[in-house]
Design a protein around this nucleic acid. Structure first.
Lengths: 225, 225
DNA sequence: CCAAAAGTGTTCCGTCTACACCCATGG
DNA sequence: CCATGGGTGTAGACGGAACACTTTTGG
């Protein structure tokens, strides 16, 4: 293949993944210790250098899967950072993705191996470089998106109770939501299907389990929390 | 400086600018003929290779200023594209920005030199590569943003009438807006200031000219169209 | 004097919000 | 039998949408 662009500068391109999980009623962020110089030992995010024959989204998923074992990853692009001064050492173009995962899916051994840790979103330590800003941007975006796109389900198992779903929204948006109003809104959405299964773990009475029907949503893609 | 990352692949990084203008009641898009191979002669957008010591946003502004002479450019990042198959020839990571400019500001000679042309947004020709998709994404984003951020002013001169502003919103959102409701909403926003100047060009009676007060907005940054 | 654009309020309707009690069950 | 979380409806407030006429003035 002819190289038409050879007079131009080429850059390292990385993806940084802001991995959100939901556990114990709280929104969690996945962080890890940086394993290479520069900045070795500092807190950072999951990430990876983009490879020659790999799409950006695939790089993001590879970064997450290889470090956590989680295979089902929902990711959306946040923004691209690449200012000259942002990186203390060599310049890198960084494409940020946020990911929503079901916390139960991770592989503890892998997580251990890579020095990963879940921290509460309200308690994120100082991260390397400009990554605190990146996390803030991702969280802002998540808060906007979760109100207008049906993505909150990705933080839960396939079957979930309405109370769990409400807690997801409360954790992300940071505030209490009225139970009756919340359930009224959900009832209007026919792509949130009640199954005949009952969850008996969280209450004595038992709670109906629901499922997000992706196909039904794609036919009437309308969502407002 | 030590090169820590040398074992990784480096990529060409470009910015592509979706430049919107407003003229004659219509939303316009700035396109140009590609001047280099591959794809020479096909319609494309303004763009530039990112340079070694240049921030991404600066690359975007440089691309626009050098080809149009327009110095005041308002840009926001849209999304980054860089899939392996997206570019027919060599792989390029492309960071898209949309820009809102006042159509009156451009330099006709420069525009001519670079083969630039304004086309109606409803009448965009087939563009090179995946750029039609990029334009669609940018327009979607613009339509969302213009409802919640005070950015429509960038398509107008510093002083504008309420009718002009309404036409901007109609052109971007694609639909008619009720004049009285529109003006009622504007009146509630104290950062859209009435000046004592009168525009006599567009009507015999004359229309009050308004101005967007950035400082007032930054003190109470709330906006809903 | 008339064409052309500027400017101005009210009513209606649907949506969001606030709010409290009964139900089913395991222990 | 009681503690725990699950499940349900209504009334009032608020915000958005529909809608038509008067004013000014250049030609």
């Amino acid at each position: 293949m002819k190289n038409y662009y050879s007079e131009n500068t080429r850059f390292y391109v990385v993806v940084d993944c802001i991995v959100f999980g939901f556990d114990n009623g709280k929104l969690k962020l996945l962080i890890r210790k940086r394993a290479i110089e520069p900045g070795m030992g500092e807190w950072t995010l999951c990430g990876a250098f983009v490879r020659e024959n790999e799409d950006l989204q695939d790089s993001a998923n590879r970064a997450i899967t290889s470090m956590t074992g989680i295979k089902q990853v929902f990711s959306q692009q946040v923004k691209t950072y690449g200012n000259v001064k942002e990186d203390a050492s060599e310049r890198v173009i960084s494409v940020a993705y946020y990911s929503l995962i079901n916390v139960k899916d991770y592989d503890v051994e892998l997580m251990d191996k890579y020095g990963l840790r879940w921290v509460d979103i309200t308690d994120v330590p100082r991260l390397w470089g400009n990554l605190n800003q990146v996390v803030d941007d991702a969280l802002d975006l998540l808060r906007k998106r979760i109100k207008i796109e049906p993505i909150g389900f990705n933080l839960l198992p396939e079957l979930f109770t309405l109370t769990q779903l409400q807690h997801v929204y409360e954790a992300v948006l940071g505030g209490e939501i009225d139970k009756r109003n919340f359930r009224k809104r959900i009832k209007n959405l026919d792509f949130i299907e009640k199954t005949d299964k009952i969850d008996k773990l969280s209450s004595k009475r038992g709670a109906a389990l629901f499922r997000f029907n992706e196909k039904a949503y794609s036919e009437h893609p309308f969502f407002r929390l």
